[in-house]
Design a protein around this nucleic acid. Structure first.
Lengths: 146, 146
DNA sequence: GTGGCTGCAAAGCTTTTGCATGTTC
DNA sequence: GAACATGCAAAAGCTTTGCAGCCAC
């Protein structure tokens, strides 16, 4: 979970990161990145769209899709794996894990220190080059347990 | 990874499992279940469809979707989490983990004994009731490393 | 000024739904 | 024979694409 300062630092670094990547800095891109960085809700493109529209009413859904895909290809955000077929994005690119509610679909982050990476180990399959891993805990969230 | 016998036992038990679940036994359902149980390729509905069509040419894609959804809701198969937006199914319902190639999208199983479940631990979040978990290793498969 | 970006609209996929016909029990 | 499944076709998502006009650099 990102601290307040880390969040701000990440948002502040965005223009610089765009420049490094050869991307133009547009209000739409800034808005989308800030929104993703500020939330812990792993939003879908549709959710990003309606959130951004509050302050940037002229933005189009197609732009949201294009920008999310661009950010993903540059490693600015990551795509979260889900069992249902909706894209979900996350600006927390450092490795962390997820609690996924099978009832409501909500995805929560697991605090990094709750998992011991040393215990996981890397599979013995020598063919496969592991770049990162993610643990998904499926179950019922607080609101859905009752 | 299921042994030959386990696989056969699972396929043999299918009619009985349908009866227990109050489902009618149809050739389409048997074919879909056998196909899923016999493969390690985590196929999409489209892949299931074209495979089944080889022996059952009259089957429709809509039926494949309906049957897969039914099997999933009864716990006969599980849906695999992916970062791209295609459903993938797996008849290996016992907990196991996946190697996902970020280049070609191929999903391989990790042998159960390669992971020590005790090392993973359950997150400290007391609100969340964990039912199962899955570890995804993202990286490059043998064919894509070169 | 130029190249890249946005917004619109249309197209492309995947998945779901409704309904008449056919099949299992 | 009744209830449930299938197959077809149409509809309903979600996502991508093409292109004219606009904006950041």
């Amino acid at each position: 979970m990102a601290s307040q300062e880390l969040l701000q630092r990440r948002i502040d670094a965005f223009p610089e990161n765009c420049r490094k990547a050869g991307l133009k800095l547009t209000p739409q891109r800034s808005a989308i990145f800030s929104m993703l960085a500020s939330t812990e809700s792993h939003p879908t493109p549709e959710e990003v769209y309606s959130e951004i529209r509050k302050n940037t009413p002229s933005i189009s859904l197609a732009t949201v899709y294009k920008v999310l895909d661009l950010f993903h290809s540059r490693g600015f955000v990551r795509r979260v794996s889900t069992r249902d077929q909706v894209a979900r994005y996350d600006a927390h690119v450092e490795p962390h894990h997820h609690l996924i509610c099978t009832a409501c679909g909500r995805i929560q982050d697991v605090a990094d220190n709750a998992i011991d990476p040393a215990g996981v180990g890397v599979p013995g399959n020598t063919d496969f080059l592991v770049r990162d891993y993610e643990i998904q805990f499926h179950g019922l969230c607080g609101a859905c347990r009752t």
